[in-house]
């Protein structure tokens, strides 16, 4: 059996156990809604378009917050490379913020920015900035000095050095940072929407809970997972296109010498 077959079998097995448990009648259908009921709730929401709306709103927030976080992380990473001395000043603060879960700031953010889009976008920025910053920084800072000398020998200035050697050399790390950052943003937005929102997947779940519709809660959770995987896959395809064989090892000549 191939990879996909095995993965599908695992999921089917889980669904069968779930169905069996709900048939057994040990738990009420409120505590454990049956797969059929969840599928029906999912279908109803898809048909009426409500689900798509919520997905769209959540994704839009993720896209906005993620873009801002990427720009900040890129600027921070580039600064760490171009001005190594400056990093010491903000290192301590970043280290502190990295250890504070963004959700814990939501009370303050609502106080300062209201329950509108701003506070949610800030949550996403905070959640996705760190994995991106750390990876992008690593990509820039760990650039092979020997490759930089090649540019130097061709008389490249600082800017050309950065554009032609440092940036392309850091692309694999930048893409890894973006991939991890995207996952973090998606998880963070659900949390933020469950605390204060009137739209979005997080709100959908919270609303269903208040209406005692556990089937809709489960449907919402399934949607989160599915959209998360879809985002990841789309990104994976983009990485595959952009990174080409660029990350293939050894071509700068450390290990890969002398075979013919």
């Amino acid at each position: 059996m191939n990879r996909w077959g095995k993965q599908a079998l695992g999921i089917i097995l889980l669904a069968v156990i779930w169905q069996g448990a709900s048939w057994s009648g040990i738990w009420s259908s409120y505590i454990l809604p049956s797969p059929g009921k969840v599928a029906k709730a999912l279908w109803t929401m898809m048909e009426s378009g409500v689900l798509w709306q919520h997905i769209f709103v959540s994704l839009k927030r993720v896209f906005q917050g993620f873009s801002i976080a990427f720009l900040l992380a890129f600027a921070g990473g580039a600064a760490a490379y171009e001005l190594p001395g400056i990093e010491e000043y903000y290192k301590g603060f970043l280290e502190f913020m990295r250890n504070v879960p963004p959700i814990s700031l939501i009370a303050l953010l609502i106080l300062w920015f209201g329950i509108g889009e701003t506070s949610k976008i800030i949550i996403i920025v905070l959640a996705s900035f760190f994995p991106m910053y750390l990876n992008i920084r690593k990509g820039f800072v760990s650039i092979d000095k020997k490759l930089l000398e090649v540019g130097q020998a061709f008389g490249f200035g600082r800017w050309r050095q950065f554009i032609r050697i440092v940036l392309p050399g850091a692309v694999p790390d930048i893409l890894v940072g973006m991939k991890v950052g995207l996952g973090y943003s998606w998880r963070a937005i659900i949390g933020a929407e469950m605390i204060a929102a009137s739209k979005g997947i997080g709100y959908l779940i919270l609303d269903a809970q208040q209406m005692s519709r556990s089937d809709k809660v489960v449907a919402g959770i399934l949607t989160i997972g599915a959209v998360g995987i879809a985002c990841d896959k789309v990104f994976q395809v983009m990485i595959g296109r952009m990174a080409v064989r660029g990350s293939a090892e050894g071509a700068s000549g450390h290990e890969n010498q002398g075979f013919v």
Binding site: K146, V150, A153, I165, G169, G246, G253
Partner: peptide
């Protein structure tokens, strides 16, 4: 000056043609 180092020091993300034109 054209410098040739002990190691090839080619850009791993560029093709041979683009490396030559680097």
């Amino acid at each position: 000056m054209g410098v040739i180092f002990q190691e090839p020091r080619l850009m791993p993300w560029l093709t041979v043609g683009d490396n030559i034109l680097f």
